[in-house]
Amino acid sequence: MGYQTLDQALSFKNNLAPLKRSILITDTLLAQGNFLVHHFIVNQIKADKHVVLVGLSQNFNHYLNIGRKLGVNLTVSSQKGYFSFIDGLTSLTINSSTIASTSLLPTAMITPLSITNCTKETLLNFYNIIKKIITTHHASANSNVLLIFDDLSVLIYSGFKVCDVLEFWGACRVLIEKYEGTLISLIHSDEVTGSSSTDNIDFDDEIFIKSLIYKSEYLLSVRGLESGFSRDVSGEITIARGPKNFEKWFRPITLHYKILDNNVQFFAKGFSQGVF
């Protein structure tokens, strides 16, 4: 089961991410948003729907272990064909020929991804890998594939051009809409007061974040508490609608959350159990 209190807050139909939509998760260093990714994976797998996970910052074991705590076994799901993992961490920067047999885990269905230089062609190859996986394994009518990027900032930070990454993201979006799926992307958006406004890095980041916000229907923005650290509250999450989204059932809300061993509790601001 995913996080029950988050399901209530999102009030998605059947607790599944709405089809043909994009969900954007933004997080900061002090309050990381990875825990939301697991929520969507678990809900999707439990409902016998398909997931394609692009792990750019974590390896398969990490998702496997947490998934096990939350009640799904991703190894079994991938054997059944419900789950595919694209490893973008161990093989992002080296030739796939050198790592072909050594670093692959035999338990998981892993497609190595290799990016040797940060050009548009490599992103095109990347897209083709994703497309191939979706069309061959997750294209059936009721699979409703969920494509997850954890996290997309890695591409920008590695030196890909913002416009290229946005184009790549747009292509994935079109692909997902074609197969009646959903796209979830995690990006980092720390509020960094840049030392100089001429700094290209900060400028790129800002364009990237804002573009994705404008292209997404749902925004989940995670950040630490303004008042600093608290033992009973891990952070604050704002569930908001994107600029294009006019759905009436959707209720934007800001909640606090606390991460537990194998669950995350979401509650109204100031209503932490530790307070009472």
């Binding site: 910052s57 390896n59 161990t90 670093s103 960094v192 840049g194 030392s195």
Partner: peptide, 30 residues
């Protein structure tokens, strides 16, 4: 990023120090 991927699949671990203060002007994170 590559080191992280490399270490995840090996029995290695790493401690790295970085002079972060050289990249900031007034102790704001950059």
């Amino acid at each position: 990023h590559a080191l992280r991927g490399l270490l995840r699949n090996s029995t290695g671990l790493s401690v790295i120090t970085i002079p972060a203060h050289l990249y900031t002007s007034n102790s704001e994170p950059c």
